[in-house]
Design a protein around this nucleic acid. Structure first.
Length: 327
RNA sequence: GGCUAGGUGGCAGAGUGGUCAUGCAGCGGCCUGCAAAGCCGCGUACAGCGGUUCGAUUCCGCUCCUAGCCU
């Protein structure tokens, strides 16, 4: 008698860049009735494969992956877009009688899913251009003062040197006439009625993570990352300002292609930027009280996780080969 | 062996007789529609040993080390 959970479940697999979570996700999904939902702000872009360590076509043929290659690099993607796309993907998966395995390192997206995200207006190019022009003319301090008038609470928590957030708060106010603080009050978690299991995977030692990051970037270059970036660089409609081109690795190699630094410098900076990204991801991870920490350097991580999930009521996938779960 | 110029925190690089360089890296943190983004915070460093001085990273001497030149 196989247990058929009537409650909707979801498994979260979170980890810093280079922790090996994609491979791990694949193994879990092959052993259990799971489909992968990518939680990654860079994997959404088509044509950005090597530098994002995107799961290969072969991997994606073995297990269903969602929210990968859904945007052109010239387009923008946001936490709001993600939340909408992810809920839809999860609904579909549940409808198929399976469970979503959310794998990734974009911690704001996980946060939006768990804590919910308010219904705010999307970014508005015109309003942003206006604000930028104002900033250029009178400085961000003046805009921060303006925010103080319309939304003192936001002004109190947003630092004067944080243009990105000052702009967003002002933008929302100009678009709605209401303060972002008041609008952010009501938010609904996508996981309100879902049984969520959270895993945080990372090497126990920071040194190990740094070594992996360095080796992985070298491998990416070997695999043709510079050529991949060059293709994007040569597109007339992309610039260094595009969010996609601000991604780690792409940004630094773009600078090199633009003649702003030599290749060695770009490489060094890209690796440092990756380490910094991983550090920020770990800061988010430490705050997730419900996460079970898994040492990604341990040889049997996959086995342990599958066991943990099976004990938690996940039925083994009937078409899964046992070996796939072992190593 | 002699002469000259230097030795500043992990690296780069200013400076001063008695509060603080700074940048990069690193570490900690923040985080609600650009998040692989944006932002905040954190370092008795002044080669060693003596001396002068109320006080020395800063002045003097010696030692060691480095670079260049000379024999």
């Amino acid at each position: 008698m196989r247990e058929v959970p009537n409650r909707r479940r979801a498994v979260l697999l979170m980890g810093p860049t280079g922790s090996g979570k994609s491979d791990l996700g694949l193994r879990l999904a092959e052993a259990l009735p799971l489909e992968i939902v990518s939680v990654d702000s860079a994997l959404v872009y088509r044509g950005m494969d090597i530098g994002t360590a995107k799961p290969t076509a072969a991997m994606r043929a073995r297990v269903a992956h969602h929210l990968i290659d859904i945007r052109d690099p010239a387009e923008n993607y946001s936490a709001g877009d993600f939340t909408r796309d992810a809920s839809r993907a999860m609904q579909d998966i549940w409808r198929r009688g399976r469970h979503p395995l959310l794998v990734g390192g974009t911690m704001l997206y996980f946060h939006a899913l768990s804590s919910g995200i308010a219904e705010l207006p999307a970014a508005d190019v015109r309003v942003r251009a206006d604000i930028d022009a104002q900033a250029a003319a009178s400085g961000w301090t003046a805009l921060h003062r303006e925010l103080e008038r319309v939304d003192p609470e936001a002004a109190a928590r947003i630092h004067v040197n944080d243009p990105q957030r000052i702009q967003r708060a002002l933008e929302v106010h100009r678009l709605t006439g209401k303060s972002i603080t008041s609008l952010q009050q009501k938010r609904v978690s996508v996981f309100a009625d879902v049984d969520v299991t959270e895993f945080a995977v990372a090497p126990l030692e920071r040194r190990d993570l740094h070594t992996r990051i360095e080796m992985r970037f070298a491998a990416m270059l070997e695999a043709g990352l510079l050529e991949e970036v060059r293709k994007l660089f040569e597109r007339r409609d992309l610039s260094a300002e595009h969010p996609s081109m601000r991604a780690v690795g792409y940004r630094q190699l773009w600078r090199h292609l633009a003649g702003q630094c030599v290749l060695d410098e770009a490489i060094e900076q890209a690796i440092a930027a990756t380490r910094q990204l991983a550090k920020r991801q770990l800061t988010w991870l430490r705050r997730r009280e419900r996460a079970q920490w898994i040492d990604s350097m341990h040889p049997e991580v996959a086995r342990k996780m599958i066991d943990a999930l099976s004990e938690g009521g996940f039925a083994a996938s009937s078409d899964a080969t046992p070996q796939g779960a072992l190593c």
